[in-house]
Design a protein around this nucleic acid. Structure first.
Lengths: 207, 207
DNA sequence: GCTCGCTGGATTGTGGAACAATCCAGGCGT
DNA sequence: ACGCCTGGATTGTTCCACAATCCAGCGAGC
């Protein structure tokens, strides 16, 4: 086996949570998962703890695990944290290159716009392109811990976006991100703060 | 039992790591810990994963767990992350109250100075006061995820402050933090960035 | 009728033993 | 010196058992 059993179980659960087959708040009973995946209960427990570290599930002692529930305060808190990471990452990235962003960030913004404006846009591609843009921006900071912390948030962010996709205006998403990349080079990291505040507002309004 | 067995084992290990009885890089063999704490191996494994989530130990599949090792790049990376969290926290805290910090932050700064300037300073009290000051500053942001992420870093921070304590000038530590709190109200969050860069430089020079 | 406490089933927490899978230091031959 | 092999040490996983805890439902007493 190339991967361990707990990674396999965690991966299967993660997939089902992230494409909405498992609803928020749903209980994850160890015995059921044991039977379903054909692994030992200890393995299931380890997988659940791993997903808890990613904040996709919540475990309470003696009360089991449930799929993470997303309310407006949780969205706000998540975006505050993303703001902290991305603003500082932008600060570092811009400082390293005299106020310019690397070419792959520009490329990712163009790719996101292309996915949004496709004749028949595919959500999974838009979502991936969006994550890729923010990911590249953060990686440009070359600050490994910031990159790691941001990566840990990525799936959680995707989970939020998933529940909102029918409310999102893709043209606006494209335009905002193109403007963001331009503004970062013109006005510095604070442009990012405004962008994220805007995104969070759109999300919390719909909850 | 008021706490679970895995919390008990994790707590015992955490304590030994944080006061230096377990050296960085040291292997943590499951069988040994099992015997030592009188618990099942699964419990030890769960405790090790929990400590790995706190980054006090590092686990690699099939290769076991070791106490986290701190070299200069790790310190730099950690301080980059702390900077991201604390600068944004300061930004939020100052924005909420027209550029002022709450009284308990000022009180914590005064307490730290008092501990540093005591006739016979006690390191554990200085360390705790230092953590308390930064913790209160971050909590003033009222951004729960930023607070949580910062709290997760606290023990890690303490871990290498520990290894540097003989090189630290306590009078300078006191003065710098008094200046920091004042500068935050005068010049805004960027004062914090300079402060943390300075701290990190002192630390990496000694490694 | 309402609250309180009790109880039993469901579920989680932990222990113990076993075996498979993997890693790694040391020996062997070339 | 180099690569290959091997065996012990260690980790990954399974199975089973039982204790500890939680919670819905029920009945007693007000």
């Amino acid at each position: 086996m190339s991967t361990t059993a707990v990674e396999a179980v965690a991966g299967a659960l993660r997939e089902r949570i992230l494409d909405g087959r498992l609803a928020g708040g749903e209980r994850l009973v160890e015995a059921a998962l044991t039977a379903e995946h054909g692994v030992a209960r200890h393995t299931v427990r380890a997988a659940l703890r791993a997903l808890a570290a990613e904040r996709l599930v919540v475990v309470e002692t003696n009360r089991g695990a449930r799929v993470a529930l997303l309310d407006a305060p949780a969205v706000t808190a998540l975006y505050e944290l993303r703001t902290a990471l991305e603003v500082e990452a932008a600060h570092l990235a811009l400082a390293r290159r005299d106020g310019r962003l690397p070419a792959d960030v520009h490329a990712a913004a163009a790719e996101l716009a292309r996915r949004c404006r496709a004749r028949r846009p595919r959500w999974s591609l838009v979502s991936a392109a969006h994550a890729e843009l923010h990911g590249r921006l953060v990686r440009a900071s070359q600050a490994p811990r910031i990159v790691a912390a941001h990566a840990a948030l990525e799936q959680e962010t995707r989970l939020f976006l998933l529940r909102l996709r029918e409310h999102l205006d893709l043209e606006r998403l494209a335009a905002e991100h193109e403007a963001l990349v331009a503004d970062l080079e013109l006005r510095g990291p604070d442009a990012l703060r405004a962008h994220l505040r805007e995104s969070a507002a759109v999300l919390t309004d719909r909850l």
